[in-house]
Nucleic acid binder design. Sequence first.
DNA 1: AATTATTACATGAATATTCATGTTTCAATG
DNA 2: CATTGAAACATGAATATTCATGTAATAATT
Lengths: 169, 169
Amino acid sequence: MAKRITNRGVTKEADPSRFLDEYLPYWLSQASYWISSEFQREVSRAGFTFAEWRALACLYGSGGETIGALSRLALMKQPTLSKLVQRLETNGLVGRSATEGDRRQTLVVITPKGTARVANLVERARAHQDEVLRPFGVANARKLLMALQDLVHQHERGRLLGSQAPGDL
Amino acid sequence: MAKRITNRGVTKEADPSRFLDEYLPYWLSQASYWISSEFQREVSRAGFTFAEWRALACLYGSGGETIGALSRLALMKQPTLSKLVQRLETNGLVGRSATEGDRRQTLVVITPKGTARVANLVERARAHQDEVLRPFGVANARKLLMALQDLVHQHERGRLLGSQAPGDL
DNA sequence: AATTATTACATGAATATTCATGTTTCAATG
DNA sequence: CATTGAAACATGAATATTCATGTAATAATT
């Protein structure tokens, strides 16, 4: 068998029937990764890490989330998020308090300062998404979004047994 | 405004018009994350970390990839992958050599031992994907896959200027 | 209501990732 | 062909994540 030196990056195909080419999780990861990477420039320019952006975006416009809920929304494990929230609190971008019902829970709320600092970025995020989806057309874009939502909802049921919140990517 | 304690995880909606609910990268990340998480149990059971699985899956059936190409395929930054490959080499799952044309490049090749150790996992991955996609039907599944591929290809052009390979998720 | 199990979060130690940079090789230019 | 610039990979120091566990509060059971 000839040793081919196919120096492809993510580029095109090559091997006939490569496992990955038909593997949904691979393409999901790729799509997610590159789209987020592209937007990360904006995030950095705004002075945030990507994790911070994620957390703040989840809190933006929300009445507050518990640590656990936020860790699922922002796709970080609970200890990771716990520490991130502490940093954000130090910077005055979020506040923490106890929930009324359950005193074990910590409620994380975005502060006015936090809201102000991300508002622009949220707009840019919307714009970026529109740009990315433009080639698809409104109808197809909507179908794609719904398909992804279906996938997620489908997997919400299987959850509830997993270890300590999210498990790496 | 009443302070709602909506303890939703990723669950259903709540706030009318939450930014995230219409935000494609969010759903891409969620879908990618949960599907991969689910499969991670199998990966752990097989004795691999998820990063190892990713790298080996990319090499599986391939004639070899350079460090750079593999870092893009497996969505890790170059230094991360470099170190991972070293560990895999120590365990005899991959081999490293120079490419013929360019002596700067390192060619990473999966060994027979490596192939043997992941073969089963690859089959399980296929099965897992089939299970995940079943509710969609063949036609819709194919559309989803193609849409994701379109997204990735669309962003391959914009690349080539980014920093040191992939940028975090 | 006491006991046991479970959940939510925090935290320290271990591990992994990332950034910045160095070395080597290749490509381009005069 | 010497020189300058860029690319591919490796590596050490700084940083971040993760695992394992601890504490406190709640829920369930007897």
